[in-house]
Each structure stands twice: as structure tokens, then as C-alpha cells.
Design a protein around this nucleic acid. Sequence first.
DNA 1: AATGAATGAGAATTCATTCAT
DNA 2: GATGAATGAATTCTCATTCAT
Lengths: 212, 212, 212, 212
Amino acid sequence: MSGTPTFKRLPRAVREQQMLDAAVRVFSRRGFHTASMDEIADAAGISKPMVYAYLGTKEELFVACLQREGSRMMAAIAGAAAPDLPADERLWRGLRAFFGFVGAHRDGWAVLYRQARGERPFAAELAAMRTRLVEVVAGMLDHALRAKGREVGATDLEVVAYALVGASESLADWLADHPEADPEKTATRMMNVAWLGADQLLRGATWHPPEA
Amino acid sequence: MSGTPTFKRLPRAVREQQMLDAAVRVFSRRGFHTASMDEIADAAGISKPMVYAYLGTKEELFVACLQREGSRMMAAIAGAAAPDLPADERLWRGLRAFFGFVGAHRDGWAVLYRQARGERPFAAELAAMRTRLVEVVAGMLDHALRAKGREVGATDLEVVAYALVGASESLADWLADHPEADPEKTATRMMNVAWLGADQLLRGATWHPPEA
Amino acid sequence: MSGTPTFKRLPRAVREQQMLDAAVRVFSRRGFHTASMDEIADAAGISKPMVYAYLGTKEELFVACLQREGSRMMAAIAGAAAPDLPADERLWRGLRAFFGFVGAHRDGWAVLYRQARGERPFAAELAAMRTRLVEVVAGMLDHALRAKGREVGATDLEVVAYALVGASESLADWLADHPEADPEKTATRMMNVAWLGADQLLRGATWHPPEA
Amino acid sequence: MSGTPTFKRLPRAVREQQMLDAAVRVFSRRGFHTASMDEIADAAGISKPMVYAYLGTKEELFVACLQREGSRMMAAIAGAAAPDLPADERLWRGLRAFFGFVGAHRDGWAVLYRQARGERPFAAELAAMRTRLVEVVAGMLDHALRAKGREVGATDLEVVAYALVGASESLADWLADHPEADPEKTATRMMNVAWLGADQLLRGATWHPPEA
DNA sequence: AATGAATGAGAATTCATTCAT
DNA sequence: GATGAATGAATTCTCATTCAT
């Protein structure tokens, strides 16, 4: 009656992960706006006030999801694409890790990502992540170029990297929508597009608009 | 009292366009869920029931926006990339038209597009549009390849096209977020990425994953 | 361009009947509140303002329906149950006319009636009709009683008549819900209940509550 | 500050009853469509969302009212008309209980009932209740008939029962509209009508339509 | 006589969020 | 640490009704 109520009094850290798991699941399947805090609390097997107590506002909760999933992804990529590998090897491993992650977390990241893109309040968060990615890719390219004794303007580099990242994201979307598709194969395809283009770039080939 | 008519009681066709204009504006700035029908009606300078009477549900209204903007964009691209031009010329003109359109309709398309991606109910609509685009691009590539006496599997072709479209969309997003950026220049950059990659492809170069 | 527009400019009386027909149909199928003026105008093949011009408010329109159908029914019954017939003959003919009418107008009266019962604003209208009916029935009974040299208090008479009318309405409801049922047979059954009871009454039999 | 608790934060069961009470009151006085959820919430002294949380949709709420009142009434009748009593005694007690209930719940049942009859979505619910009643009455009659060694076709029995129930409902309506009327007396009157008719039936008297 | 255009007002329903226990 | 109870504030959508032509 008084003693220790041996319920499920879990330590905060554990509860938080449970909640995030549930939130990612629900947000993914239903979208940020369509998902309700009730749903999430239910899915987490916990009462709403707890969600608020631990993770704050719906918006904050979403950001927390975004960040957890984001860093997991970055970690997966970074872990695979060690900086001391040759450029093509790094790119390949990075892509494989990326698509592998998306394939394994279809529910999680790809859709969260899709959500985040559309909802204004998360643009910043997302832009930050993408920027980190773009920087990594741009870094790879730059490194490779310098190795060949060549150099390209920073903006150009960035735009190319941006395009590659964009293409990858697009294929990731596609992958998320095609559960039967093979992440590895998708990575290979992306690598083909990316590498062939990048390779040209490395060789100094450029296309110029015809004079009007 | 006599002068200019005070803009009341306009014919349906006119009002519908006004409403669509307003809706595109509001949805763009606020997002599908955040935008309210009240807001849109206000922005259109008309009462809510008229919006419902002419364009239906909020969802239907959004689809109407999507379709109007979508076909405008397709028209712009199709008008620019005449099928009888050489492949690189077509690609270039198509890209220029695309980025030109996005640049001129930052408010409209790019953001609508961004919205549509995230909201489940519009996935189909959007997928349809993207598919049309992918097909056009894949067609270009195929045409060019055959001209060189080469051929590539349909899926591979599609994925490459998909990646190119994805990259373009990404840059379009970027463009929409950078009002100072120059559409033409962005098109040139995209063309570089796309063409260099495609060119390789045309030559038959391929990248293969190293054996595990 | 100017001459007489030979459209469907129908005389008012005709239009009004068209509208009432449509209104009865729609109200029947959808209920007073659920039916919309739009629906009714559509069903009548006419524009809403015309409905308002000719038949007024929704409520007034409903009353008009009620009255038209009500007098048709009363006419049918009165036409059948001539006052110079013997009491049982009158009752039988009256019932047959009543159930015949309901059977033929399932859509119209029975449901309108059902509607009217529930909606406060029409209670008066309906009560008036029912009262007329109750009076007729009470008259029949009284006439028959007097013929036998007996007499019954006015209230008692009214209540009995009320009960008979109620029972008939109930069976009418049942009939309206069972399209396959035979009106004539239903009338016979009601006649059995009514006449047997009334006959007893005519003989002076009465039931008294046991002393508590 | 300390004294009587200010009636806040009541347990669910209590609140639900409060809400049902309020809903019955409001629906009765205003009708299903005319009543607004706001009104009901107000009448219950609680906020709208609680009503939705506990009792669901307006329609569901109405059904809940219908059921609560319906079972109360059935309980009252069943409690009074014990199955081991002789037929006339049972009928009399049942009727007395019925009219007593209606008299005491004018606000509640009679009007709810009146509402339910008219609104399509509740037809089923109501038909179910009425069927239970009809079965009880038919059972009584059948029992009495068999006791006299007689038997009547099931349909005939049902129709007679239906008519009796209909007559009672009609008188109940009348009672609900005449607050000054005495339930007991009304029951007596109904008993007269019912019993006299039934008694005839028991004796085997029948009325036949004259040959056309 | 007839109608397309237009709206004020209101209704149901949902949600993020917070007390009181 | 944990929750059932509670609500203010929106939001979508519908409708009866009326002008202006």
C-alpha cells in the first residue's frame, strides 16, 4: 500500500527512448500534423503529460525525433566512409551506408525527412543536416580534385555536391516507397550517376551554354 | 457610383482563377495544414462558401493548385525543349525552362511542390507529374544513346533519369530558398552535372562495386 | 435574341406542383433537416430563388407539403367513408382508404408524417390533422353507440378514438417500412383490432382496475 | 476555500451520467438536429471536448440517451409485469408501468422517442426496442390464448400486438403533451381498449371484409 | 419569369496543452 | 514519477437565404 510501487517506473533515459521510438513511428506513418499527441502517447504506452514532461511540445518532440534519426544516419555514413580511403571508395561506402540506412529505417528517416522538408518550422533543422552532408560530399570532391592538381570554385563545388545529395535523397524517397527494392542496388545506381559525373568533373570537362 | 465597376459578381471562371491565385500564395507561405480556408478566402477577397462552391474541399483545392501549377510548368518545359533538337540542346533548354519557371514562381511551384511531397494525400498526384518528367528525360537519354548505337536497360535508364530529376528538384528547392540566385546560372550548373554524367553514360562507361 | 423566350416559362400553378412533388420526394427520403434547399431545387429542376419566390421558407415549404399530402389523404378517406353508411362499413372503408393511401404514397405521406411528428415547428399542423381524424372516428363511434341507445363521456370517446388512430398510424409506419406488405390485408387486420374493441365498447363492456 | 468541494474533477462514471441527463433534457426540448453540442455541454456544466471524449459523436450520444432511457423503461415494465401473473393482470400492470414511466419522464422518453422515430439513423435502434415490446405483448396474448385452448397465426398475433403497442405509444405521446393528464387514468383507458379487443380475440371472434 | 453569384452565421469535431491528485 | 480529467481555441464545412442581372 505504501512501499515501493513496483510498477514500470523506468528511468528517464529509457522512457525517453521509448517515446522517441513511438513518435518516429507515428510521425512517419501519419505525418506531423495528422499525428496527434494522444496517438503518440498511446503508441508509447504512456500518458500524455509524461510526453510533455520529458520531451516538451509537439514541435520540440518532432525536432528531437529529427535529431536522433539524423545523427544516427550521419553516424552510419561517417562510420562507413573513413576519410583516409580513396575518393571513389569513400563515396561508394558513404552511399551504401546511406541507402542501407534508409532501407532499414524506411519508417523512420526517409519519411521523417519527407515530413520535415514540407513543414516550415523544421526547415532550419533540416537545412543544417543537409549542409553537413553537402560539406562532406564537397570535401570528398575537393580532396579528389586537389589530388589531381585541380581546383574548382567553392560555389560550383557546393552546387555539384548539392545536386548529388539531392539526387540521393530523391532515390532514397523512391526506395522508401518501394519496399521490395534493394538498397545495395540503388546505391550502385546512384554511384554510377554520381561517379561518372564527378569523374568528368575531375578531368576538367565542362559544359558551357551556347551563346544566345 | 458609375465609374469603374466595384468588382462584384464576377463570372465563375474569373473567380476561380482569383481563388487559385490566392490559394497558391497562401499554401506556399503557410503550408497545407497550417493554411486555413478562412485565410485563403480572405486572400481571394471572397467568402468561404464560394471557395467551397467552386473548388470543393481543402484537399481538392490543393490538388487544383497542384495541377494548375504543374501543367503550367510542364507547358513551359515542353514548349522550350522541342523534340527535334539534338539531345544536349533539348536538355539544356528544358533545364533552363525549368529553373526559369521555378525562379519566376518561387512562391508558387517550388513551395507547392515542397508541400505536396510531404502530405500523403497528394503523393499520387505528385508522383504522376514526376513520372511524366522522368519519362521525358529518360526519353532524351534513350534517344541520344540509340543515336550512338548504344542501349541501356529500361530500369537503369529510369533510375538515372530519376536521379537527374531529383537533383534538379533539389537545386530548385535551393533556388527557391535563395531569392538572389540566378536561375540561368543554376540551370548551367545542373546542366554540367547532368550532361557530364550523361555523356559518360553515352560513352558506355560504367562503375561497378568492388567485389566484397 | 429578343422575341419571346420560348423556354419553359410555365404558369405558376404548374411550377408550384412540380416543386411540391420534388419537395415531398426529397423530404421523405432525407428528412426535414437533412434535406437541403439546393437538393429540392435541383430535384424540381428549377433554381433556388424560384422556390423561395413561390413557396417561401424551408419551413413554409415543408408545411405546404404537409398540407397538400394531408388534404389528399383526408379526401381519400372522406370519399370512401360516406357518412350515411352503417358504422362498421364506414370504419372498414375508411381504414381501407387510409392504408391504401399510405401504401400508394409510402414515399410521400407516411414519411412526411414521420418527419412532422419529430420536428417541433410542425407539431401544430400535424396535431390539427390528427384531431380532424380523431373527430371523425369519435363521431363514428358515438353515432354507433347512440344507435344502440348508449352514451359515453366525451373524453373517453376521444381517448378511444385517439388510440385507434394511433394504432392505425403505427401500422401505417409498419406498412411504409415493408414495401412488400399488402395494404388491404393490413387494413383488415387493423379492422379486426379496432372493430372487436369497438364492438365490445358498443355492448357496454368495460374493464376496471382492481382496487389496489 | 475548504468547505464543500466545488464539483470539479469528478470521476468518469459520474460525469457520464450528468452528460446523459443533460443530453436527454436538451434533445427532448429541442430535437436532435436543432440541439447543438454546445448547448448540451453547457447544460451538463462541462466543456464540449469532454462530451466527445466520453460519449462520442452527436449521433452516438443520442443513441446512448436512447438506450439508457429505453432500458430504464423496459426495466420498469418488466419489473411490474411479472410473467407468472394472469394475462389481464400482467397487461394492466405493464400498461400502468409504461404510462407511469412516460408520465414521470415526459421530458425524457416520450420526446426522445418522438425524435428517434423521425431520424433515419436511429430507426434501427428504435425498431429493436419496439420489437422487444411487441414480443412481450404478443407473448402475453399467445399465453392467454393457449390457456383458452385457442391458437392464432404468428403474423396475426404480431400485428395485433403491434397495433396495441402503437396505440399505447400514441396515448403516451398524448400524455406527454398534456402535463395535467393522469398517467394512471390513461393506462386505464388504454387497458379498456386493449383488453376489450384482446378479450374478443380470445373468444375467437373475428371480423371479415365483406366480399367485394 | 428566372438565375448565377454571393454570404452571414453556425455546427460538429479535433487538438495541443495543463491541472489536481 | 505518473495520470485521468478538463478546456480554449481553431478549423473545416454546410446551409438557408438574398441580390443583381
